[in-house]
């Protein structure tokens, strides 16, 4: 982690950080990187990639369409909705 990486991450995540917060984050990641460097000493060449933490595979369902919820029920807790849509502050690229 360096200032440039952090700048890109804050931009992507739309975060506003103070200079002190930025320094804290960089220092935090520096400590994590030291830990990771220690782990990297271990030879894992022959270890198969773990694809999932649970021993459960192939949970699939048949392709059958259903409509268990109404739009009104789903939008009942929305901060703002109307004309059938959820409404959010204007976003334009």
């Amino acid at each position: 982690m360096n200032h440039e990486t952090l700048r890109r991450l804050t931009l992507l995540n739309q975060l506003s950080l103070t200079d002190a917060q930025k320094e804290d984050i960089i220092a935090f990641f520096a400590r994590q990187e030291q830990g990771l460097a220690a782990l990297n000493v271990v030879d894992t060449e022959s270890v198969e990639r773990m694809v999932h933490v649970m021993p459960i595979l192939t949970v699939v369902r048949e392709d059958v369409a259903a409509q268990p919820f109404t739009r009104e029920a789903l939008q009942s807790g929305a901060p703002d909705a109307g004309e059938g849509y959820w409404r959010v502050p204007r976003v334009v690229e």
Partner: peptide, 22 residues
Amino acid sequence: ESKIFCSCSAKFGAGPNEHVCP
């Protein structure tokens, strides 16, 4: 017929938010 991770219809052309679930 249905979406990739839920059973909502995947058909094109419905009114807004008619094919939605949690």
